[in-house]
Design a protein around this nucleic acid. Structure first.
Lengths: 110, 110
DNA sequence: CTCTTATATAAGATATAACTTATGGAAGGA
DNA sequence: TCCTTCCATAAGTTATATCTTATATAAGAG
């Protein structure tokens, strides 16, 4: 599974998106991240593992706590994919515009 | 499952991303979309159903063919989420910068 | 070392995703 | 009408995601 697959699969889960949203406001440890949810702590730890593997967060050590930080670089492959998709889309639109701009009853060569 | 969940889950699959990539260059029917893959045609139809439910493609009818088109509006929720995440991140950075700009040995109020 | 706190891991249940093959349906051509 | 093409749906299989509870581990306090 590519890093892009992993990142997209990771953020397709609303719990994990909420976690990232929280981390965008500053680092937080597991208990703090788990607090807003009805889920068990192990469930949150598992979500964090998914986010870490996807390169979307990093984790440190502070005594017994494991503070998590958002890793914005993890979004780069997603940005790149979106950009490429849109660039191709634009090229397609431009091509269609060119076709319409030609006089269809007169011109024939590309 | 929210529309954002659906869109992200949809594009987390490399086959579906490839299909979207192909459609970015212009509309195409199912057989044409299936051609590059080793998968069966029903598998592609199922992927297309996922993309359609996620609002990422639309489908027409042209005789016996079902031409598919990219629906860029389907990416709007994703754009919105990414923007908000980054806006929060920026706010966080700005706040940290402010804290550092204060003289920590002298100032105390926020 | 013992106790506590914070977190990770293991094991297991359940749901869902992603394929397959087989079949059904819709539209056009002969 | 019959046949063919294009595509969708059904049913079944296998893999994986996402929880749960129970337990292990890591680090500091006393």
């Amino acid at each position: 599974m590519s890093v892009l697959d992993q990142a997209l699969l990771a953020i397709s889960d609303p719990t994990r998106r909420a976690i990232l949203g929280r981390l965008a406001q500053g680092e937080a440890a597991v208990m703090e991240l788990a607090a807003p949810f009805k889920m068990s702590q192990p469930a949150i730890s598992q979500h964090l593992k998914v986010l870490e593997k996807a390169g979307l967060i990093t984790r440190g050590r502070d005594g017994t706590r494991r503070p998590c930080r958002l890793a914005p670089e993890g979004l780069v492959p997603l940005d790149a994919w979106l950009s490429e998709l849109r660039a191709n889309l634009e090229r397609n639109y431009a091509r269609l515009d060119d076709l319409l701009a030609e006089d269809p009853t007169q011109e024939k060569k590309s």
